[in-house]
Every structure is written in structure tokens, then in C-alpha cells.
Simulated scan of single mutants.
Amino acid sequence: MGRGTGRTGTALVTTVAATALAAGLATGCGPRAATAGGAPTASPSTAAPSATAAPSGSSSAAPSPSVSASASRPPSATPRRTTAAPRTSAPRIARPVLPEVTVSVATAGGVLRPVRGGAAREFTVTLRNDTARDFPRFATGLTMEPYWVDEAPRDPALVLQRRDPATGAWRDHPLHVATDAGVLYVTTGGTPLPRGGVRTERYRLRALATGPAGRTTIGVYGVVTGLPQDASFESRGSGHATLPLAVTRAG
């Protein structure tokens, strides 16, 4: 073939290629267009919308169900446990240790006033052991001097009784009438009185219809009982008090 034929073939190929390119662009099936820098770019007609895009007008994704449930949960109704403040109490003041048992006597008006032939008058004796020892047996001894009439001693004609704490019954109790301290030897019985122990005993005194009248005192002694016969005088007693006594006649 000659030159004319070559130019005609070349023009024909060029025309066919151009036609095919135009048809491809029109149907979207042709090659991607090139950018100015030569890198391929996606054709605007081939971009598909994302299936996960947020709907129009929403600026954020839908809240998670777990977050929503936590936010709407009401506050717990269970009260919080609180630690109570430690209680403070006033410091206990230790009582001083004393060498003897404290013996105290009490009666209405401070003076025992029985009337001859009248009712018995009550009084109480309290024993408080603030010593450093325990007493296995401890009793109360009561004594008084005899009345003196015309320079002669007279029987006071008094009846002393002690109330039994177990039964509530009144029982006769010895009243030592003498001018000595023999009450520490003749008093018997007694119950334990430990260190720190306190005991209150009830007594009553009745004046018989006949007998002397006047004022005197009753000695109240704490007596350590159950000691051997040769125990010293000092070891037998622990504490004492006095009770004023005024016996009168009726009328």
C-alpha cells in the first residue's frame, strides 16, 4: 500500500478511538478521567451514598442503649452506711483506799426518838468497804452505855431488831449495853463484804413501857467476825459511827 493509504488508516483509527471514548463517557463504563497531575480521580457519577450515614438534620450518632439506661436509672434508695461517732464518757474517778470500812447511820431528823410504850423507830446502817482487803465475814455491832439513875446503872429497857433482807421479817438483834468495847468480841454472824462492796442494813428500836428516859448515843461498829479467839483487838474492828438517841415518855 502507498502513503495515501497509510494516512487514511491512521485517520480512521483515530476516529474510531474517539468515538469509543465518547460512548464510554456517556454510559459511565469508560476509563476514569485523569487529574491535572495525572492521578486518577473517582467519577462523580459513580459515588454511591453510604448506608451508615446519619439521617439529614442529625449532628450526632444515636445514643447507645446502655448509656441511655444508665442515665435514666433512679438514684439508689439504700441509705449510705455511716460510722457512728465513738461515745465518750466522763472518766471514772477512783475512790481513795481507806484504812477502815466507812460506817454511816441515818434516821429521820438525825436523832432516834422512841417513846416509851410507843411504836418502834427505824434507822439504817450503811457499810462501804473502800479498804484494800476483802472481808469473808463482816457484821454490825451496836452498843450503848447504861442509863444512870441516882448514880446507879439502869437497864435501858430497849428492844433492837434487824430486818432480814431475804424474808423481810424483823428479828431480834443484840444490843450490847456496857461501858467497854466488848461489842467487838461478842458480835457474831456476818456476811461477805468484798472490796468496793456496799451494804445497807435496816434496824428499828422500840422503848418498853417502863424504863428510864433521857438522851444518850448508840455506838455502831463494823466488826470482822470469824476470827480466832486470840486475834488482836485492832484486827476485830473496822469503822464506827454514833447514833444520837433520845427516849421520852408518852404525854
Rank of each mutant, 00 (worst) to 15 (best):
L205Y: 09
A77R: 10
P228V: 09
G110W: 02
V13Q: 07
A23K: 01
P55L: 12
P55K: 07
P192Y: 10
A209V: 13
M1N: 10
S104E: 07
P165R: 05
L184N: 06
E122C: 00
T5F: 03
A213L: 03
A26H: 07
L21S: 04
G196P: 08
P65H: 08
V13F: 01
F135P: 00
P86G: 09
P212S: 07
T15N: 06
A90P: 11
T27W: 00
T102S: 12
P156V: 10
Y203H: 05
T35G: 15
L21H: 02
R206K: 15
L158F: 03
G37T: 15
G6T: 11
S64L: 10
A69W: 05
G38T: 07
F233T: 14
T225I: 03
F138H: 03
V103T: 09
G30Y: 00
F138D: 08
A178L: 04
F138Q: 08
A26R: 12
Y221T: 06
T107I: 05
T200S: 12
T107G: 03
S56Q: 12
A119V: 08
S104M: 00
T210L: 04
T179W: 15
A34W: 01
W148Q: 14
G109L: 08
A152C: 00
P49M: 09
T41F: 04
T52Q: 10
A62S: 14
L25V: 13
H173T: 09
G2A: 05
D130L: 13
L12H: 05
P192C: 13
S68A: 14
G109A: 08
R116A: 03
L25C: 02
Y185M: 09
V125S: 02
P153F: 02
S59Y: 05
P194S: 13
A250Q: 15
R3G: 03
R81Y: 10
E234G: 07
D155R: 11
T78H: 06
G222V: 02
P194G: 12
A39F: 06
A84F: 02
V183W: 08
L243C: 11
G182E: 10
T35I: 01
L243S: 08
P192M: 11
A42M: 04
S68M: 11
A33W: 09
T191H: 07
A51T: 14
P86W: 00
A94L: 13
A11Q: 14
P44E: 06
V177M: 04
V97C: 05
R92G: 13
A90H: 07
T83K: 10
A94S: 13
P31W: 06
L142A: 05
R171F: 00
A36V: 15
Y221L: 03
T131N: 04
G24P: 00
W148M: 14
T14I: 10
A139S: 15
S58K: 14
T124M: 02
A36Q: 11
G197I: 07
G222H: 06
Y185N: 12
G197R: 02
A106R: 15
G38C: 00
T78G: 01
T225L: 06
